[in-house]
Design a protein around this nucleic acid. Structure first.
Length: 488
RNA sequence: CGGGGAGUAGCGCAGUCCGGUAGCGCAUUCGCUUUGGGAGCGAAGGGUCGCAGGUUCAAAUCCUGUCUCCCCGACCA
C-alpha cells in the first residue's frame, strides 16, 4: 500500500498538507495563497457556520450584509486601524480591460476616481452605515453579524490557517454604554469558547491580548488560544472592545435619555475558516482527518459488501433498515454502495475524510444479525448486534465527541509549563514548545525582547487572576503569569 | 523580501549532468474476473515538456531572460 500521508513525526507541515489533500478539503488555487474549498471542506464549514449562527441568534444578533468594496478614504479615518491593515490590502484601481493582440490588458482610461479597497475587515464600511442608523439611545444596541469573505494580502500563507482570501463571520455591535459593550465583548468570547470546546472538541485558553498583539483600532482584544499537535499556538477567535474609536472616526453619536449627545461604544468579533486548520491540527492522525461527531458532515458511513445480485439486494435492504433507524435519531449517515471499488479502498478513503463511525455490512453480517462497527478516532473495530444498533451508535458518537475533547485537553495540559526563570523558559520554548506561563513586567520592550530572542509571543493574559511575582527577564513586579508560546 | 525546491498527460513523478522517436505509476474509458483493509488480466484514450528569445542539422535537455507555485524564515487582527 502506497503511503499517501506523511507521518506527523516525520514532517508536520507536510502531514498537514497531505491530510487536507487526502481528506479532499481544499486545493491550492492558481493564485498564490488562495484556495479552492472542496465539498468536504465546505460541508464542514457549513456545519460550523450553522451552529455558530444559531448561537449568535440566541444571543440576540441578526445577520446583514455589507459591501465587499470600501472607499480608500474610509480606511484612513481611524489612525490605528489604517496602520494595522494598510500593508495588506488589495486595491481596485480600474474598472475594465481591453483586448490587445489576442490578450487583455487594463484599460488606462478606466482608472477610478477613488480607488476601492477589498475589505480586509468591515468596521469602516459598517460604521459608515451605523452613523445613518443611530440618532437616539432608542436605536441602540445594534447587534449585527455578517458572514462574508475578506482579503488580506499576506506574505506567508498556509491552507486554512492563513489564506489571502478567507471566509469568516464578523459581528459588529453598537452600544449606549461602555459597560454594555464590554459585556458584549466578553459574552461573544464565551460563545467562541463554548463553540470551540463543545463542538470542535478543541480546548482553548481565554484571555486578553497585550497592546502589541491587539486588533488595530481596539481598546482590548479578547481571544481564545489553543495549542496544536506540533506544540505551536493558534489564535482561534477574537472579540474586540473597540471603545469609542470608530464612533469618533465616523462621527456616530446618539442622544441619551438625558438629552446629551454621546459617542457610541463598539465591539467586533470574528472567527474564520482558520478554525478548520485548528480542527485538523487538533485531532487528526497519520491516517488522515479526525472529525468531532457534532461537526462531521457525515457521522456514519456504511460500506457494503456482496458477491452477487441476490446478496446485493439483501445487503441493501438490511442497510436501508439501519439507515432509517439512524436517521430517526437524527444521525447523519451515508451509504457507500459503490461497486468496482474494494472495501479496503473505501475504508481508507473514509478514514482520510474523518468520518467518525464506519459500519461494514456484508453477507456474514446478515447471517448473524450483526454489523462490523469501527471507530475512526481510536481505530477500534468490533462486531456488534444489529439489535439496538442505532442507540449504540448514538451513544458512541457522544462518547467520541467527549473523548476527543478529553484527549486534546490532556495533550495540552501535558504540554503546558509554568516557569520562573528566563533560562528555563528559553529551554522549554526551544526544545519542547507548548504553552509556557511566566511572569512579565507588562512592558512592550520586554515582550519584544522575548520575541526576538525566542520567537515566543504572549498569546494572552489569562482572564483568571494569578499570583503576583517578578518578571522572568527584568525582575520587575508582575501581577500574574501570562501565557507564552510560539504561534502560527 | 531572504534561503531552498518545483513547473513534462487529470494527479504524482522519471528523463535534463552527457541534445537524437516523450516515458513510468496512479487515475480515466471498454471487456472479463473480483469485493471482509488501497483487486487482477487484457485493450484504449490522453502532451504546444510554464513562457519568450538564442545556439544547433536537431532542444524537455545547452545559454539568456522572464513568470508562477510550494516549503522554511522575516512579516502578520
Amino acid at each position: 500500500m502506497a503511503k499517501k500521508i506523511t507521518s506527523k513525526s516525520e514532517d508536520f507541515s507536510q502531514w498537514y498538507q497531505d491530510v487536507i489533500r487526502e481528506g479532499k478539503l481544499a486545493d491550492h488555487s492558481p493564485v498564490r495563497g488562495s484556495m479552492v474549498i472542496r465539498p468536504n471542506g465546505f460541508a464542514l464549514w457549513e456545519n460550523m457556520k450553522e451552529e455558530l449562527d444559531q448561537m449568535f441568534k440566541d444571543t440576540g444578533h441578526e445577520n446583514a450584509y455589507f459591501p465587499l468594496f470600501i472607499p480608500k478614504s474610509f480606511l484612513s479615518k481611524e489612525a490605528q486601524h489604517v496602520e494595522g491593515f494598510a500593508k495588506e490590502c488589495a486595491v481596485v484601481t480600474h474598472s475594465r480591460l481591453k483586448s490587445v493582440d489576442g490578450g487583455v490588458e487594463v484599460d488606462p482610461e478606466s482608472k477610478l476616481e477613488e480607488e476601492l479597497i477589498v475589505r480586509p475587515t468591515s468596521e469602516t464600511i459598517i460604521w459608515d452605515s451605523y452613523r445613518n442608523w443611530i440618532q437616539s439611545y432608542r436605536d441602540l444596541p445594534i447587534l449585527i453579524n455578517q458572514w462574508a469573505n475578506v482579503v488580506r494580502w499576506e506574505m506567508r500563507t498556509r491552507l486554512f490557517l492563513r489564506t489571502m482570501e478567507f471566509l469568516w463571520q464578523e459581528g459588529h455591535t453598537a452600544h449606549a454604554t461602555k459597560e454594555e459593550a464590554v459585556a458584549e465583548t466578553k459574552q461573544m468570547l464565551e460563545v467562541y469558547r463554548t463553540f470551540a470546546e463543545e463542538y470542535m472538541a478543541m480546548p482553548v485558553i481565554t484571555g486578553v491580548k497585550t497592546e502589541s498583539e491587539r486588533f488595530a483600532g481596539a481598546e482590548d482584544t479578547y481571544c481564545i488560544e489553543t495549542l496544536l499537535q506540533d506544540n505551536k499556538a493558534l489564535q482561534a477567535g477574537t472579540s474586540h472592545f473597540l471603545g469609542q474609536n470608530f464612533a469618533k472616526a465616523f462621527d456616530v453619536k446618539f442622544q441619551s435619555s438625558e438629552g446629551q449627545h454621546e459617542y457610541v461604544w463598539a465591539t467586533s468579533w470574528g472567527v474564520s475558516t482558520r478554525l478548520i486548520g485548528g480542527l485538523i491540527m487538533t485531532h487528526s492522525d497519520d491516517q488522515g482527518l479526525v472529525l468531532p461527531p457534532k461537526l462531521a458532515p457525515n457521522q456514519v458511513v456504511i460500506v457494503t459488501i456482496w458477491k452477487n445480485d441476490e446478496q446485493k439486494e439483501a445487503v441493501l435492504d438490511y442497510c436501508n433498515d439501519i439507515i432509517s433507524d439512524l436517521k430517526q435519531l437524527g444521525i447523519r449517515v451515508k451509504l457507500d454502495d459503490r461497486e468496482n471499488m474494494s472495501p479496503g479502498w473505501k475504508f481508507n478513503e473514509h478514514e482520510a475524510a474523518g468520518i467518525p463511525v464506519r459500519l461494514t455490512v456484508g453477507p456474514r453480517d446478515l447471517e448473524n444479525s450483526n454489523v462490523e462497527l469501527a471507530r475512526r478516532d481510536t481505530g477500534d473495530k468490533n462486531i456488534v448486534d444489529r439489535e439496538g444498533l442505532a442507540e449504540r451508535v448514538d451513544t458512541l458518537l457522544d462518547t467520541i465527541q467527549d473523548e476527543l475533547f478529553e484527549t486534546a485537553k490532556e495533550r495540552i495540559q501535558n504540554n503546558t509549563h509554568s516557569v520562573d526563570s528566563y533560562e528555563e523558559f528559553k529551554e522549554i520554548i526551544e526544545n519542547e514548545g507548548g504553552f509556557v506561563y511566566a511572569h512579565w513586567d507588562g512592558t512592550a520592550e520586554t515582550e519584544e525582547k522575548i520575541k526576538d530572542e525566542t520567537k515566543a509571543t504572549i498569546r494572552c493574559i489569562p482572564l483568571e487572576d494569578g499570583e503576583e511575582g517578578e518578571c522572568m527577564v527584568t525582575g520587575k513586579p508582575s501581577k500574574q503569569k501570562v501565557l507564552f508560546a510560539r504561534a502560527y
